[in-house]
Amino acid sequence: MHQRRTILPLRTGLLFLGPAALFIGAFILLPFFWIAGVSFTNRTLTGATAANPQFVGLQNYLKLFDLSTFMNPGQFGSSLVITGQFVFWSAIVGQAVLGLLLAWFFYRRSGWVKESVQTLAIVAWIIPDVVVAFAWNAFLDYDGGTLNWLFGLVGLHKVDWLLAMPLLSIVLFNAWRGAAFSMLLFSSALGSIPPSYLETADVAGAGPWQRLKDIILPLIRTHIVTDLILITLWTFNTFGPFLLTGGGPAFKTEVVSVLTYRMAFKYFDFGTGSALGMVMMLINLGFALVYLGLLRRQGSSR
């Protein structure tokens, strides 16, 4: 491997990085240290512990993992399970697979059909949260909702989506909302595959499924990992479900970000809210390491 020539000297590089670093230091690192510190206190915004917060050690963390109430509705354990299901189904299965299908389906095609469909997917991704929430509330409404109207057309029974299947509702919602990012990422990943690879496959008579499995997926392996890291992280932290269901009914859709909101901003219990934030960051870190580890192992076994 030949020594690459340095294009930017370190000092200039740091200078370029400086303004961004200043912002990140002030608005990300400072709050992060505040959160880390407060997670070991019983600080609240109102009530007696607002005026005199005390150091409580690991108490906030232990309370989160209190096994006698861990799995009760509205508690951390139950919320974690809901979040796990939500992330797995809506991000990993929903967004990534839907995004990959969209990218693959339109791969090496162009024209108004591709443009329109991809634009629709991107529109779902860019319009504001509160607007999307309105639209989905109406879409899933029991009596007049578009989805139940469609079900009626094909002779299916109406479903009370937000009450009877709340978790499925937010999964569908989030998959729909975020598929465009994966689609964009995979589209450009596919675009970076040299056409000659696929031509060879064509000559060898490989079917489309085989081509996807044996050639395309291994080639865009690293992109898949990046995609999974980002969408897992974003889905773990998304507040979208709150706008659709408010976390209910009976906390059935209370993902951890919504639980954190309830602790920090409804109860003003910043100790617990901060501890939740810290635990979630560690879990996210764990996921990122697992994904990267998978990538490395696969890479070395090849």
Binding site: L30, F32, L233, S257, A264, G277, M281
Partner: peptide
């Protein structure tokens, strides 16, 4: 990774 917890609700007070 950091930015995702900090843009969440936990950081609104700091």
């Amino acid at each position: 990774l950091f930015s995702s917890i900090v843009t969440g609700t936990a950081a609104m007070v700091p």
